[in-house]
Computed example of a mutant assay.
Amino acid sequence: MSSERELEISPIVQESLMQNSRTLSNLQSLTASLFGVSAGILGLESYSGFLFYIVFSLLTAVLFYVLRVAPTSIASGKAPLDTSRYFRGPYEFWAGGVMNGFAGFVLTWTLFYGLVRA
């Protein structure tokens, strides 16, 4: 939790948190559909398809963190893996995308699996 002094120096703006969440959600929805296309074309079935989705969704979160969040966190002196300054919580950042994009993944996965295997 941030102290009052830290909030005075660099305040957390709710509009910025909402914009960051929207950007991350859009990225996760887009990549979930792309992962569904990939899983369908590869012909993955059952657990291997779901494992494919989970691994690549978490990989997307890690890449987003490394390329976008980590440089600014390190520059501001924050602890590693601390996303509280840019997002509502760590769950929203690390695992929220797995649930948000799941429906789009399954939809495109079954569509492309049917198209390729038909």
Rank of each mutant, 00 (worst) to 15 (best):
T110V: 13
L51C: 11
R68Y: 15
L81G: 13
F52D: 01
T108R: 02
T108S: 05
L42Q: 06
S33L: 07
L24P: 01
L7H: 06
T72R: 15
S46R: 00
I41E: 03
V66W: 11
P11G: 12
Y113K: 03
L81T: 15
Y86K: 13
L42I: 04
L81E: 14
A118C: 01
T72K: 15
R5M: 11
V62D: 14
E45L: 09
T31G: 01
Y91I: 11
A39Y: 01
T23R: 15
T31A: 07
F50N: 05
F52K: 02
L44S: 01
M1F: 07
S10V: 15
E45W: 06
F56Q: 06
S33K: 07
A39L: 00
W109C: 01
V66L: 13
E6G: 04
S48H: 12
E45H: 08
F93E: 02
A39S: 04
G49W: 00
Y86S: 08
Y113F: 11
L111Y: 10
L30N: 11
A75R: 12
R5G: 03
S25W: 02
I41K: 04
L27D: 05
S16G: 11
L24W: 09
V55M: 04
I12H: 03
Y113R: 02
Y86E: 09
E45F: 09
P11C: 14
L34M: 12
L63I: 15
A95R: 00
V55A: 06
S46Y: 05
I12Q: 10
E8H: 15
K78D: 15
